[in-house]
Amino acid sequence: MNIFRLTGDLSHLAAIIILLLKIWKSRSCAGISGKSQILFAIVFTARYLDLLTSFISVYNTSMKVIYIGCAYATVYLIYAKFRATYDGNHDSFRVEFLVVPVGGLAVLINHTFSPLEILWTFSIYLESVAILPQLFMISKTGEAETITTHYLFCLGMYRTLYLFNWVWRFYFEGFFDMIAIVAGLVQTVLYCDFFYLYVTKVLKGKKLSLPA
């Protein structure tokens, strides 16, 4: 464990909790892509199946359980409890265009051709693009609530911090995982445009709105 990984994990946790609280407090999931949230629930489920097969640490297990639990709670709030506020018309990204190629890639490029390993690889690839329906929704409506941008910032920072963690681990432990690194780079690049808007607009107290 190093400082980048820990802050990355905490940033991830903050993102998840910010989103849950936003929906819960406002009793509304307006502006939130349910499709992205379903993809994240799939990501956690596929990746953390090792909860059933191996124990790493109390920290590891509890974070995994919290991530999975919160992901499903978010999906429940969007599609059941506050369904009336869900903006399905603007959440029109075709997720099969992500899931199918990513599934194929996971079968083709993985470390070991075994079910658990392929599911793990699938989750790494899928996570890198799972935010696209959300970003697509924002580009379609041209705006995002400030709290939603805080969520996206924390979520984007999490993988960015993991990139530093992998540099650290390479230098100090001689350890690297090409699948995670390449997917992590893709994931971070997808947030760059958003990071720019967040710093130049949201941090200066303006609402995030895109030119028409």
Partner: peptide, 10 residues
């Protein structure tokens, strides 16, 4: 072993 090492990440 390399594999087990990575899986400690979230």
């Amino acid at each position: 072993e390399e594999e087990a090492k990575l899986k400690d990440e979230l």
